[in-house]
């Protein structure tokens, strides 16, 4: 019951956002004579959308889920035997300039690995991020290393390699916009995004 309610809460904003994503946007030229404006493509715009606060990670992933497939609420019941809460935790945080997964996140990763092992059709995208300090391309490298680190842990615990996709956004997509230790800590992260549930 509880799970069903959660699913509804997640699905409703998703429909709204999906509508936004497919609506025509204003990204075409602004009378500057540019030939090559990019239209937001619609197909993948739902993925990895992040916003505001600490727990926004999980709502962002919910968008990805529903945006990508026609899920009914039963499909979202990622788990019916486990305490589902762990599967809803989908952000792993890191220390500065480090990519080692801290022991406090092992339980969460194990839960996702188990789910992936039990659902061979499921796919996740591991989005690696860095804080704003230092250079941007080095931070792209760092974000990828963090994503790979989470992928390795998931693999060791049962996820198949073809279920895992790593992409690094470096410092380009912060969730916290401050220029302080607190914001930096929130931005050094890997987001686990389900692109296919089963």
């Amino acid at each position: 019951m509880n799970i069903l309610r959660k699913a509804l809460i997640l699905v409703v904003p998703v429909m709204f956002l999906a509508g936004c994503a497919s609506a025509p946007t204003d990204t075409t030229d602004e009378g500057l004579g540019t030939d090559s404006s990019i239209e937001s493509s619609g197909t993948e715009t739902g993925f990895g959308t992040t916003s505001g606060s600490d727990d926004s990670g999980s709502s962002a992933q919910a968008m990805g889920l529903s945006g990508s497939s026609d899920i009914s609420s039963s499909a979202f019941s990622l788990d019916d035997s486990d305490p589902a809460n762990l599967l809803n935790k989908r952000v792993i945080y890191f220390d500065f300039d480090r990519s080692k997964v801290k022991s406090e996140y092992e339980e969460i990763i194990a839960a996702h690995a188990t789910y992936l092992a039990n659902n061979p059709g499921a796919r996740v995208r591991l989005e690696g991020h860095a804080d704003e300090r230092g250079s941007r391309e080095y931070n792209i490298g760092l974000g990828e290393r963090r994503g790979n680190s989470v992928a390795r842990h998931l693999g060791l615990q049962g996820a198949a390699r073809n279920q895992l996709d790593v992409i690094s956004y470096g410092e380009e997509r912060p969730v916290a916009l401050g220029h302080d230790e607190e914001s930096w800590a929130l931005n050094r992260r890997v987001e686990i995004v389900y692109t296919k549930q089963k």
Partner: peptide, 26 residues
Amino acid sequence: RYSLQVADADGHGPQAILNSSEPLMS
């Protein structure tokens, strides 16, 4: 909204040669 801009060295006359909703870099 990300844009790639070209301007005079004194910052005048900026023109976006590319606009995107996804990051642009380097």
